[in-house]
Simulated scan of single mutants.
Amino acid sequence: MQAQHTVIDRVDQVAEDVVSLVLRAATGPLAPWEPGAHIDLTLPNWLTRSYSLCGDPADQEHYRVAVRHDPLSRGGSEYIHHYFRPGRALEVSPPRNHFPLLPAPRYLFLAGGIGITPLLPMLAAAVAADIPATLVYVGRSTSTMPFAEGLRARYGDRVRLVATSEDGRPGLGALAESLAPDALVYCCGPAPMIAAAQAAFPAERLHTERFRPAARTFAPNTPFDAVCARSGRTVPVAADQSLLDALKRAGYPVASGCREGVCGSCELTVLSGNPEHRDDIGAPAGRMYACVSRALTPELHLDL
């Protein structure tokens, strides 16, 4: 996907350790998007990081994302917090959406901390369409919750802010009991919140997005060959090597962001062979994510 050229228009502190970036189109309108979408930011320190879009989908001149400074940062959030200033040029990917807002008669949105970002445009879209929607937004304190005050001012009693340092964690069981039978639930937050939502709500009505992949166990890695159909090359993938790293080492410019199977930037088309899907997105038929997924067959034939 071709990169889009933007300029950092604004950098705003929106909570403790959280900044909002407003990116302005540098050349023509930006690619359209829908609630739940995210973009990859290509950072000047050679890293690529994915962030949910949290602005207005109708505004094709600007994108907005919010970034929490992770104390265990691998160089992404730390660089953004320390070095990003208005006026800096920045390449971003076209939007991708693995967390779309499906039509429903009513919604319950559950956000934990920075997990509010993909839910902001969802709530706005529901309210604009006059669809009943409630947001339960959880954080350690309101000072750590980006956009909290603006949400309360804009949406009133549609929004419930829960500061766990004062109120404790909300009981999702009670929310599930009072949930209308035709409502969909959208949840984005840390792993304990996702687990609690999965225990409380029916799977067919719950849609989630994670910060980090769920802990799972797979069979030991084995080597395999990636057969690149268009170029006619075969790239061996060692047991201690990811498909993404093997392809990059061989000179294939495969995009990459999270390297954890949650952003989808390294999606590849599989022509034949059986991939072992290890991502948290749910790869569609004929696709795989090269950063974490491997092969169940000696060869994978890829559209490369």
Rank of each mutant, 00 (worst) to 15 (best):
Q4I: 05
Q4Y: 06
Q4A: 04
V7C: 10
I8C: 07
D9I: 05
R10G: 04
D12C: 12
D17Y: 08
V18G: 04
V18W: 07
V19E: 02
V19R: 11
V22D: 14
L23T: 09
L23D: 06
A26P: 00
T27H: 12
G28A: 03
L30P: 10
W33C: 09
A37D: 01
T42H: 11
W46N: 14
R49C: 06
S50C: 13
S52V: 11
D56A: 11
P57H: 06
D59H: 13
H62P: 02
P71F: 10
S73V: 07
S73N: 12
R74V: 14
R74C: 04
G75K: 07
S77P: 14
E78M: 00
Y83T: 11
R85Y: 04
P86E: 02
R88V: 15
R96G: 02
N97Q: 08
F99P: 03
F99G: 04
L101A: 05
L102D: 15
P105V: 14
R106P: 08
Y107V: 05
Y107W: 04
Y107D: 07
L108Y: 05
L108V: 11
L110F: 09
L110Q: 03
I114Y: 03
I114E: 09
L119C: 09
L120C: 05
L123K: 08
L123S: 11
A128V: 02
G139H: 12
G139Q: 08
S141M: 01
T142L: 14
T142D: 13
P146R: 09
F147S: 09
A148I: 04
R152Y: 10
R158A: 15
R160Y: 05
A163W: 01
T164Q: 12
D167I: 00
R169M: 14
P170F: 02
A174K: 13
Y186E: 08
C188M: 06
G189D: 10
P192D: 01
P202D: 15
H207D: 05
R210Y: 14
P213V: 09
F218H: 14
F218M: 01
P223N: 11
A226V: 10
A229L: 00
S231K: 02
V235G: 05
P236S: 06
A238H: 03
L247A: 06
P253N: 05
V254F: 02
A255T: 00
S256D: 15
C258Y: 09
R259V: 13
G261C: 00
V262G: 00
C263H: 01
C263Y: 01
G264E: 14
S265K: 07
V270N: 03
L271D: 00
E276G: 06
R278G: 08
D279T: 03
R287N: 11
C291S: 05
T297S: 15
P298K: 11
